[in-house]
Simulated scan of single mutants.
Amino acid sequence: MNLPRLVTLPHLAAGTDLAFLALRASVGAFLVWGVWDNITSAEHMAKFVKFLRQFGFPAPEFLAPFDVWVQFAIGAAFILGLATRWAGLLCAVNFVIAIVMVDHFQGWRGSFGSMCLIAVGLVLATHGPGRYSVDRMLARG
């Protein structure tokens, strides 16, 4: 028995591209789902504007729809694997702002979701989308 291979599991690297597809699709779907109510309901958007105002965001009437559409675009980009590195950077920046402005009031546990989205954004920004992506098709183009 080869103990180092048993510990490091190098054969799992064969699934890297599928793992990145699963990561992109699940996080992308989560981001789209998370803002869909604001896109489809003026009432929900108004609540989001009020929420941003409560936490001292500047120009909440502008920032609320802007942020909603940015998150939607990030989610769609992750799902497709399109402009993935840019989407990863935007995701990381967006959720750093969420922690600084809102989540830090809830402590570590309350910030954890945003911290995970920062980490996912940074991984996708630095690694890229993997083989199963529009980015990969365009690069071969």
Rank of each mutant, 00 (worst) to 15 (best):
L90T: 10
A139C: 10
D135F: 05
V49S: 06
R24V: 01
W33F: 14
E61N: 13
A119N: 02
R136I: 01
R85M: 15
L31D: 00
A83K: 13
A46E: 15
F78K: 04
L80Y: 06
S114T: 05
A46C: 06
G28Y: 00
R140N: 14
I97A: 02
Q71N: 11
W69C: 06
R85S: 14
L31S: 00
G121W: 01
G113E: 04
N38P: 02
G121H: 02
A76E: 02
D67C: 15
G130F: 04
C116I: 13
A77T: 03
V102K: 03
T40S: 14
H127W: 09
W69L: 14
A22I: 08
L9K: 13
A98N: 05
M45T: 12
A59F: 12
G141K: 13
A59W: 07
L21D: 05
N94P: 08
V123M: 08
I74Y: 04
A73C: 08
V27Q: 05
M115T: 06
A29N: 00
G56V: 15
S41W: 13
R131A: 10
V134R: 09
V49I: 15
F95S: 02
Q71H: 12
G56T: 14
I99E: 02
G56C: 09
E43N: 10
A125C: 15
T16D: 08
L31F: 08
G130V: 01
W86F: 15
G113V: 10
F20H: 05
A13C: 02
V49L: 10
H11K: 09
A64V: 13
L6C: 06
F48C: 05
L9Y: 03
V120S: 01
M101A: 12
V123N: 10
E43C: 11
L63N: 07
L52P: 00
L90A: 15
A73Y: 07
G128I: 03
A92M: 12
P129V: 04
L82H: 12
L52W: 06
A125Q: 08
L80C: 11
A14S: 11
A139F: 07
D135Q: 15
C116H: 12
D17S: 04
V32I: 12
V93D: 11
V27P: 00
G130Q: 01
S26N: 12
A25G: 00
V7M: 14
V70H: 00
V32L: 06
A22W: 11
G56Q: 04
F20S: 00
R24M: 09
W33Q: 11
I97Q: 08
L9M: 11
R140W: 15
E61T: 15
A87L: 06
F55S: 07
P129K: 09
N2Q: 04
A98M: 07
V70K: 03
L89N: 06
W86R: 12
G110A: 03
L21N: 03
R85Q: 14
A119E: 02
W33D: 04
T8V: 14
H104F: 10
L21V: 03
N2T: 04
M101N: 06
